[in-house]
C-alpha cells in the first residue's frame, strides 16, 4: 500500500492522466476528418402511379414475380404468398396499402424488402433501372407534389431524368403498425 505522500501524488497523477485522456478523446471528436460522402445505390421501380427509389441495401430479392398463392381472411393489400427458394414471402400491393388505389395491380415484377428478420414482398409493375446517388443529391419531399403521400414512409426523393422518384423508407414501412398488425388493421 502506498504511503500518504505517494497516494497524494498518485491521485494527482491519475487526474493529470485522465485530463489528458479526456482531452485526447475530445480532440478526436473534433478532428476534422476527411469523410467521403457515401454513395447509396437505389433501384428505381414503378408500382401503379408511384415511382419509387428503394435502397439496394434494403432489398433481399428483385426479379419476376413468382406464382402467388392466395390466402383468405387477409386485407386486400396482401395479395398472397410466394415461394422463393423454399422461403415463404408475403406479397403486398403498395398502392392499395397506401390508399392510393382501390384494386390491386397486376404487375409481374417483385422486390423483397427486409428489415432484420422481417421480409415482405412488394409487387411492382416495372423495374426501371439503378442509380447511385450521394446524400446531397436527395431532394426533400416538399420540392414535389408529395402531399398525398404518407410522410412517414416518404420524406425525400431523387430526380432522375426529370422524373421524381420517392425514396421509400423501408424501415418505417416494415415497422408500420398497419403492416405488422394486418389482422386488426384490415
Amino acid at each position: 500500500m502506498s504511503s500518504f505522500p505517494d497516494l497524494f501524488n498518485l491521485i494527482r497523477h491519475i487526474d493529470e492522466q485522465l485530463t489528458e485522456a479526456a482531452a485526447d478523446s475530445a480532440a478526436l471528436m473534433q478532428t476534422p476528418k476527411s469523410i467521403p460522402e457515401k454513395l447509396t445505390k437505389y433501384i428505381l421501380v414503378g408500382a401503379g402511379n408511384l415511382h419509387l427509389a428503394i435502397a439496394i441495401e434494403d432489398m433481399a430479392e428483385v426479379g419476376p414475380l413468382p406464382a402467388i398463392t392466395f390466402l383468405p381472411n387477409l386485407p386486400a393489400w396482401i395479395q398472397g404468398i410466394v415461394n422463393i427458394r423454399s422461403e415463404i414471402i408475403s406479397v403486398v400491393d403498395l398502392p392499395v396499402f397506401l390508399g392510393l388505389a382501390e384494386t390491386g395491380g397486376a404487375g409481374s415484377r417483385f422486390v423483397v424488402l427486409h428489415q432484420r428478420k422481417l421480409k415482405v414482398g412488394i409487387r411492382l409493375d416495372s423495374i426501371i433501372g439503378t442509380v447511385g446517388r450521394f446524400a446531397s443529391d436527395i431532394k426533400p419531399l416538399d420540392a414535389f407534389d408529395g402531399n398525398r403521400l404518407d410522410k412517414s414512409l416518404f420524406h425525400s426523393g431523387l430526380l432522375v431524368e426529370k422524373r421524381f422518384y420517392f425514396i421509400l423508407n423501408v424501415r418505417k414501412l416494415l415497422t408500420a403498425p398497419r403492416l405488422v398488425d394486418y389482422n386488426r388493421a384490415g
Binding site: P72, L74, I78, I89, K119
Partner: peptide, 15 residues
C-alpha cells in the same frame, strides 16, 4: 409457416 410477415392467418395453419 407463412413466413416472417404473416405470423397468423385465420383459417390457415401453414403451407
Amino acid at each position: 409457416n407463412l413466413g416472417s410477415h404473416l405470423t397468423h392467418v385465420p383459417g390457415i395453419s401453414g403451407v
